[in-house]
Design a protein around this nucleic acid. Structure first.
Lengths: 143, 143
DNA sequence: TTAATTCCGACTAAACAACTCGGGTATTGC
DNA sequence: GCAATACCCGAGTTGTTTAGTCGGAATTAA
């Protein structure tokens, strides 16, 4: 029940982009330095984010990346799914593998739980938008 | 974001044990056959379930396994955690690795989401008990 | 005693994860 | 023109995890 490093980095990177939203494109190198992530590894992640239309790229000198929409309109679920593909807690939930799930003649006993789990995971991730990640939390302001 | 085959098999096996609850110990061989799971692989899973006190074993001929408590008092979360250990969507949520999470001086931006995710996953899994898995679903009865 | 079982620990083959490396091309600001 | 950048691509590496397999010892009912 783990997310990949790619997803973790992807979300961190997107959080940084949120902070610099409205300041023009931010180069990958900047993000890599701030978040101590290998530049080359980030280069592997960003195409996924772009294909999902979460970011836009600006080529050439002074180029970089910028969010496609305001941080409030991008949520963590978008990022996770862009980088890791659809959430499938067990293989038999993907359409491809529907047959391998149930050996019993009657309906698979466990399928319902996994579907519920999948839906709830998507729900939680979709509840949190990038601006919520970035905004200063009340608790911290007080301490 | 996947569960292991161990967990999947573990839950399936526990569902079978639920059905045969009150009929004395059920040997692993039976479960293996019913669920088309390698006996030897099941043998690796069951010690985990026993250590978590979800099942009790009866050794020797005519032995087998039996649930420690009625199916209604065992939920899927118990099984998942018994087999896979605690749910940790990202490594930095485990106590061991707390340092490697945040490179930034300020608090880790993303930690909160992952904590929320972890809690919700546990919630869903804890909502479903074995007897719910096993009982005939209304929808099916009608069709 | 024998057969059925749990129990234990080692082993393995394949897949996957998390990178690293190296190079090239296209685009753009200065 | 030059430097900085995105973009593309594939290859290699290293270590871990997964999903098993295998062989045998301990226990027990019959």
């Amino acid at each position: 029940m783990k997310l990949s490093a790619k997803v973790e980095y992807g979300v961190r990177a997107m959080a940084v982009l949120s902070i610099y939203y409205q300041e023009g494109p931010l180069p990958l190198r900047e993000i890599a330095e701030q978040e101590k992530i290998s530049l080359k590894f980030l280069e592997q992640i960003f195409p996924d984010l772009r294909r999902a239309d979460l970011i836009q790229s600006v080529r050439g000198s002074r180029g970089g990346y910028i969010l496609s929409r305001p941080p409030a309109e991008i949520n963590v679920g978008d990022i996770v799914r862009a980088v890791e593909g659809p959430i499938t807690p067990v293989d038999c939930l993907s359409e491809v593998d529907s047959e391998s799930c149930c050996h019993r003649k009657d309906d698979c006993l466990t399928r319902q739980v996994w579907e519920k789990l999948r839906d709830r995971i998507n729900d939680v991730l979709d509840e949190v938008s990038l601006d919520e990640l970035v905004e200063v939390k009340p608790a911290e302001t007080l301490t």
